[in-house]
Amino acid sequence: MGEAAKKEWRIEIDARLCKGCEICAHFCPTKTLEIKGITMSVRDLSTCIGCQLCDIRCPDFAIQVFPK
């Protein structure tokens, strides 16, 4: 777990596609995401564990997580 946590991630949010439903933020196990205005944004990238749950449950093809 410690090894994995050290790995760094890049979160891409497509503001054109995001509808701000907040599903990603709600189900993010580390609370890395938050809503800002009408779209989602990254609160603190260092907490991301790359689990991809945000991507998998995003209905709008708006968020993806890449290894840095």
Binding site: R16, L17, K19, G20, C21, E22, I23, G50, Q52, D55, I56, R57, C58, P59, D60, F61, Q64, V65, F66, P67
Partner: peptide
């Protein structure tokens, strides 16, 4: 832990889709 590339399966230029914010259909 690589994101899935949906683009080969989607028609170009059709997104965003018509579904409401939070609608499960996109999932």
């Amino acid at each position: 832990k690589k994101p899935f590339d949906y683009s080969p399966f989607l028609r170009k230029g059709k997104l965003p889709h018509i579904w409401c914010a939070g609608c499960g259909h996109g999932i």
